[in-house]
Simulated assay, not measured.
Amino acid sequence: MIEFKNVDLVFGKNPERALPLLDQGYDRDRLQSETGLVLGVSQANLKVNKGEICVLMGLSGSGKSSLLRCVNGLNPVTRGEVLIEHKGEVLNFFDADHQTQRDIRMKRISMVFQKFALMPWLTVAENIGFALDVQGLSKEEIARRVDAQLELVGLTEWRNHKPSALSGGMQQRVGLARALATESDILLMDEPFSALDPLIRQQLQEELLQLQSRLQKTIVFVSHDLDEALKLGNTIAIMKDGCIVQQGNPQDIVLNPATQYVEDFVAHTNPLHVLLCGDIADPLTVLPAKDDHYCIDTKQDCWFNADTGDAQCQNQTIKVQRWQEGDSMNDLIEAPTLVSASASFHEALEIRHRTGFVVLVECNDRSLKVIGDDQLYRGLLGKLG
């Protein structure tokens, strides 16, 4: 859906004069000191697949918002391409004619800002429908979309209120509804929750994930909060001084930091929100074994038979229960439990607590692994691998 290819973005007068200097290896500081030009983004290569959330993150000034704004042309690239899938073909936004760029901005891409950017003289419903009116849609179509978005974000009863009557979280939901009302495929979110209180921020993160599960937008989300990035992102690109220093899924970022900068970033991450059972599980062979039976509880003298999938505890056969994501934890009984490798670390911890038994993990190749107290402790301490 979106791809950045060798994107350089330089701010200042005649930014093209920076390009030969960048090719000679000039970094941001040297370029600015010698030319007065500011390097916003350097040689960015990143692909955002359709229907996924890609989080651009880094410290202030790292270039994440600058790169985001290249998608809709708010920041014209100095060199490189921003490829967007449009009407069945992939085109470079900056090579497209004016009308095509206008169509993409108005119908394919929506943006949610950190500052809510609501018009205080308009009602909630009027704010949501403003962009639709600019597009020239009929009053009936505008009303239909506004009603649908008000219901989606839970603000139907507030439709006739002005923004000043709403809390910060509610105002941000209006901004999100306004972006969604255009029914665009691509959603750009520039630190949309950073100005909110922690509880409201967490609530809106959950609401965004719920909406995404239904709408499957292609979302580029800017954040300086790693926990937020790990919670929301299918992929994460960490930036420093205008460069993407590492990109990958949340587990890759936490388990395999590419640089000291990334390692410092992830050092204090809560692993419960990131790691999966497949990340912390060990092979069954770490357990005491005899005759293809593995001891999963020494106190209860409980042995798991990998061939039958049953366990023998004090001469009684206990059937292993299966738990899948979405199942209620309340239905678990005191018995060994089998989960998929994609179940979360947090879920494994709760299953261990509720059942009193180790957690058995079925990997993608159908092999079995185990999560006991040792694996849980090492995961919590970040001592994996």
Score class of each variant (00 low, 15 high):
Q203F: 08
Q203S: 11
Q203K: 15
Q203A: 11
L204H: 06
L204C: 05
L204E: 13
Q205R: 05
E206F: 09
E206I: 15
E206T: 15
E207V: 14
L208D: 13
L208N: 11
Q210M: 09
Q210C: 09
L211P: 12
L211K: 04
L211V: 13
Q212P: 08
Q212T: 02
Q212E: 08
R214T: 09
R214Y: 10
R214A: 05
L215W: 07
L215T: 10
L215Q: 05
Q216M: 05
Q216C: 03
Q216P: 06
K217S: 10
K217Q: 05
T218I: 12
T218R: 06
I219S: 03
I219W: 04
I219V: 15
V220A: 06
F221R: 00
V222M: 09
S223K: 06
S223R: 14
H224I: 02
D225L: 10
D225C: 11
L226Q: 13
L226Y: 05
L226T: 11
L226G: 03
L226A: 08
L226C: 03
L226H: 10
D227F: 10
E228L: 12
E228P: 12
A229C: 08
A229T: 07
A229G: 08
L230H: 05
L230R: 06
K231Q: 01
K231G: 01
K231V: 08
L232M: 12
L232N: 09
N234I: 00
T235Q: 15
I236Y: 11
A237G: 04
A237N: 07
I238V: 15
K240A: 11
K240F: 13
K240M: 13
K240S: 14
D241R: 02
G242A: 08
G242C: 14
G242R: 14
G242Q: 08
C243L: 12
C243A: 15
C243T: 14
V245F: 03
V245N: 03
Q246A: 11
Q246W: 07
Q247M: 10
Q247R: 12
G248Q: 02
G248I: 04
G248C: 09
P250Q: 09
P250E: 10
P250Y: 02
Q251M: 13
D252N: 05
D252F: 02
I253H: 12
V254M: 11
N256D: 12
N256H: 09
A258F: 02
A258G: 04
T259R: 00
Q260S: 03
Y261H: 01
V262G: 01
E263Q: 05
D264W: 03
D264H: 07
F265I: 00
F265M: 01
F265E: 00
V266K: 00
V266R: 01
V266I: 02
